[in-house]
Design a protein around this nucleic acid. Sequence first.
RNA 1: GGGCGUGUGGCGGAAUGGUAGACGCGAUAGACUCAAAAUCUAUUGAGGGCAACUUCAUGGGGGUUCAAGUCCCUUCACGCCUACCA
Length: 845
Amino acid sequence: MSDRYNHKISEPFWQNEWSQKKVFETENDLNKKKYYVLEMFPYPSGKIHMGHIRNYTLGDVVARYKKMQGFNVLHPMGWDAFGLPAENAAMTEKKNPEEWTYSNIGVMRNQLKSMGLSIDWRREIATCHPDYYKHEQSFFIDLFNNGLAYKKNSLVNWDPIDKTVLANEQVIDGRGWRSGALVEQKHLSQWFLKTSAYSNELLADIEKLDNWPNKVKIMQSNWIGKSEGQQIKFKISQNNTTNIEYIEIYTTRADTLFGASFCALSTQHPLSIHLAKSDNKLNQFIEENQNKDPDKEKNGYKTKLYVEHPLKKDLEIPVFVANFILMDYGSGAIFGCPAHDQRDLDFAIKYNLKILPVILPKNTKKENFKINNVAYTEDGTLINSYFLDGLSIKDAQEAVYKKLKDKNLSTKKTNFKLRDWGLSRQRYWGCPIPMLYREDGSIVPVDKNDLPVKLPKIKFISEGGNPLNTIENWKNTTCPLTGMKAKRETDTFDTFFESSWYFLRYCNPRSEEALEKDKIDYWMPVDQYIGGVEHAILHLLYSRFFVKALRDLKYFNFDEPFQGLFTQGMVTHQTYKLNKKWLSPEEVRYDEIQKKYLNEKNVEVEVGKIEKMSKSKKNVVDPTEIIKTYGADTARWFMLSDSPPERDLEWTDVGISSSYKFINRIWRMVSGVVDGDKSGYSDDNNKNLNSKLNTCIINIEKNVEEFHFNKSIANIYELVNNIQKAVENKSASYEGLIDLFKKMSLILQPFVPHLSEEIWRKVGGKGLAVSQKWPEKTKEVIETNTKTAIQINGKTRLIISLPRKYKENEVFEVIKNDKKIDKYIKNKKIKKIIFVPEKILNIVV
RNA sequence: GGGCGUGUGGCGGAAUGGUAGACGCGAUAGACUCAAAAUCUAUUGAGGGCAACUUCAUGGGGGUUCAAGUCCCUUCACGCCUACCA
């Protein structure tokens, strides 16, 4: 009799069985009902971390459960394989990015396999493979031909020492992360996708996403940032050295027009740039203030220009160039109403501009209303505004619009915060953008027959700059149409481009066609997508855009890629510090006697906050070590227990070892019965246990569907505890117990699949547990009695077990003479009795 | 500044407006053991009582209700996201 469950033998064995019997290979039967489970695919950084374990465990529970429910399940895996870390490794360790990436993939694939995931590995994709990225090059050409991709100048972060472009996350406190140099803003001509063409649809369709977390929907909606306002023209009145007649501003608060005391232009505004040509001081101001710096004080430069107030002829308003006006929102110019906008107020105080309140709060007298250094931004009625006085904010906006529209000075305009997606990256390790710059100056796409444009092989990357620029025999080519000399685009795609359609490719990962319509129609949309909330905006929004754009290019006909979304919490761990240096968990131990945390030299260690596992804080636990020591099932069980999946999960040593104990407890219980003495069993408890099993199945189904895996785990504990009691006192029949074990092993399958198989085999189950149907609920309700709480004035005084079918008067008859109840109701008048069947009976006295 | 969310035992967490604390961890005591680990059994929100029992408890303060962790108002604390978006 083997007392211990040996995961080291068992887990590889069953993983091999599953693979040999091809149980996770998706069926081609397109008539069967389908279920597509997807976890966000990993970046092949080198090894998996606890976040991955949690993510893929959650997905695997869903996938295995749905498979047992009879669905044709698609549960694929791949690699988000382009990106910066490969280039960093190429620079710092002189490694070839391609080899580095594929070798990491090899390691991580094995690590994932050791988790026992129900993945169809035939469908594995790596986005850095030409067979993958050739299709997105083709999509890009389609987008270009349909006006959804275009080129324009835009600002990038430029590191003047490394002579390279930096991604936003590589800029730390305004400095390059490697060189430490102050980052400059530099204009470069770059490729964009017209995400803005879909602003309205991206916003409106959020409503269709019923199975998304509300907070993600709100984040997306805020990011798209729709606002409705007016574009108003202010006539330039004095010192007009330009041929520009008007300054156009965008406002959502046209009602505050009479409170205007200045206009402000962005430093990038064409008029600012024009004025700077003949104004050295302005030129200097623009240079000093054009870099984005959120902490910088509001600064302005007063130009010689004035504009006329559009509704008050005699009022002249000064024009400033100011550092807090964004060029790429609205028209890059505003009018400032200091009384009702905090930014404008700060600015007005600094430059001593007039502050005239025009909105009066309700129940306030005009004489008593003063603006000091807090702007009033709430609701109210108009004052100091001539014909608008007394109107509501909304009516005033409408009245202003009516007045100005006839003079052609105002138009209604809807603005979005959402901008077009800048795709170009001045990087080597990405998908080449399939465009050519012909010597006659025109820009043409590569002929689709010449795809893929493969990345040229390189050994490693020397410091600074994109190597594609210097590989002449790759860069120089000819135009397929004219034979003219041409140069290739040397920028590569943002890696969000690859992740915007990988879920489509999984449907037909090896087909010559990018997307096979029948497969896409069958599998899409993804039924359940699972990943970190950090992708709530960009990745999910780009993917939604991509699907809509490809739909309009007639690749398929659906609107949203992800039917259901679940965002999991982080895996956290206690941090430790000594002399301001972080210590890893292995360097720290808890001393029971001293009740202190000590390092190896018995020096007391400072216990820090519980934070997300990260290398920099050293609070990481390596999942491969955990799987080696305790097994994949233990790791999975711990990931699922206690904390609800959407919340943070704290990794603790006692947590993992108690999971391990439970796994062993189940095995001991089963093997003890099967290998033990078969005599002496009674069947007193069979009925009761079947009832518990039934309840357990009902609860688990509900909890798995709702992603309350922590509660499913509690359901299983309850069931196992009940069975174990019966095993110990042999109060259920042997056959009954074996039958329970069979069903229990199937219930365990989605959570701890290896142990499930082991039990299934031990109790003589045929075939594999993973291929069985999810156990059915028995129809009979076994327990005839239920506990009813008897309350007096809403306070529970007695809990009594009564037949389920009892009515109010029957319950009352039973309890009215109970001495506990009697003492509360005797000599009192019963005013009312409230009865909820099978729950409570409340006597109001 | 804006948005979202969370406050329940020593801890993680359960509770369609209807028995607050399921389940797990930890802790205490006992059994087994030469001893420990493992395992098993019992107890475990706080206070009072020999006891039957009883009082108080879901961040704080109000309210609605026969009944509030749950609904409403108000207030405090913490966390996350986002930010000159006119």
